[in-house]
Design a protein around this nucleic acid. Structure first.
Lengths: 210, 210
DNA sequence: TGATAACGATACGAATCTGTTTCGTATCGT
DNA sequence: ACGATACGAAACAGATTCGTATCGTTATCA
């Protein structure tokens, strides 16, 4: 994204934010464009379905307004994905089980919508065709969250709540895979509120009699 | 797919397969077209990336040859997906664990390649855009396999190898989700041979100390 | 040999998308 | 008021795709 403010320094002054001349860029347009991009990425099922014209139409914006901000489609999508960076969820830390459930729930449904899973599926699916997009999305959006789950699992081993030989990466594949898969499979259909809990409990306890 | 043979009946004869006049259609072309379609579906990450012209080029076939067989792209893809119907894998039946591992392995890698997961991911991703495609793929290709796994799990409960309150659908989401997710994530990268075993063992035993 | 139809190659019109440019208008600081 | 810049709308050339049509060629049968 391009800068919208200039920093100026004078001798007697500290740094001051000033504004370039002319009409300022519309923040509303920024937001509408990013939103439309993500929505199309999900609905059309991939990067190929994201058309600058479709984005413009959906955001009620001229194509000019998009091209003034981003040089091409890929750059736009990169910024749209980066906007999904969000503060980590607060973890109670009471138990591994509670923390994993919190993380699993966030994986599937963020702020009440499932756009996150749709984006994830699309970007993953286009990984071979758009490796840079995939790389940055993984690094900036996905990996930070995975790291949180990883540390929860590590802590669980240290505290003796998990077996010491637990394969952390494996458990992460299982939990996130189940959630993502299920959410994607059911689309807008019903997603039981306790699905995340049941996944976590199954992984913790197993399904064999004890 | 259109018929390539005509059935004719005469009074004194039983049904006889005869052939329409003219040059017969090339079976080699049939196969090459289906193969190219599936390959593109995986490589391009979705239905949108499957171009009739690309299929023709890849199959070394004229576009005419494709349009002579299928009326449009969607019909072609439907038939290409239907070609993935395959005989169920033989299950030893020695234990739930062994059978689940066999099924999990087949889910991830079929006959040495991972095209199956790629197709699965693509068709799933385009589910909203091409619901008919998705529906038929699920019904004809995916569901029969899910049914096998389902019956293995049901049998495991009856035999007492699994807890009676085991949520069968949940376990299926977990196992298939983990495998599909992991295979897709690593692309052409290494896929440890024991991944399927470890997933199944984790789900069976859980990761908490016992 | 002749009839028939599939073959690959190629061209086509209609439609769509990209990225650029031009237009007149709107919104800012001075 | 004036200069500067962003705004949406529209037109544009070039590329790509779809589905059709038209070549001359090739395979099969009678």
């Amino acid at each position: 994204m391009t800068e919208t403010t200039h920093m100026t320094e004078t001798m007697a002054d500290t740094a001051v934010t000033t504004r370039p001349p002319g009409r300022p860029r519309s923040e509303r347009a920024d937001k509408a464009i990013i939103d439309a991009t993500l929505a199309l990425l999900v609905e059309e099922g991939g990067v190929a379905g994201v058309t600058i014209e479709a984005v413009a139409a959906r955001a009620c914006v001229g194509k000019t307004t998009i091209y003034r901000r981003w040089p091409n489609k890929e750059a736009l999508i990169i910024d749209a994905l980066a906007s999904l960076k969000e503060p980590q969820p607060e973890l109670g830390g009471a138990s591994v089980r509670d923390d994993l459930i919190s993380l699993a729930k966030v994986t599937g449904v963020e702020k009440g919508d499932r756009r996150r899973v749709g984006v994830y599926w699309s970007v993953f699916g286009d990984g071979d065709k758009h490796p840079e997009l995939h790389r940055r999305f993984m690094r900036d959006v996905v990996e930070p969250r995975r790291e949180v789950m990883r540390s929860v699992l590590r802590g669980g081993i240290e505290k003796g709540e998990l077996r010491p030989d637990t394969d952390i990466e494996l458990v992460m594949w299982i939990i996130t895979g189940a959630i993502v898969h299920r959410v994607k499979a059911y689309g807008a259909g019903p997603m039981p509120d306790d699905f995340a809990e049941k996944v976590v409990d199954t992984v913790l306890r197993g399904v064999t009699p004890r």
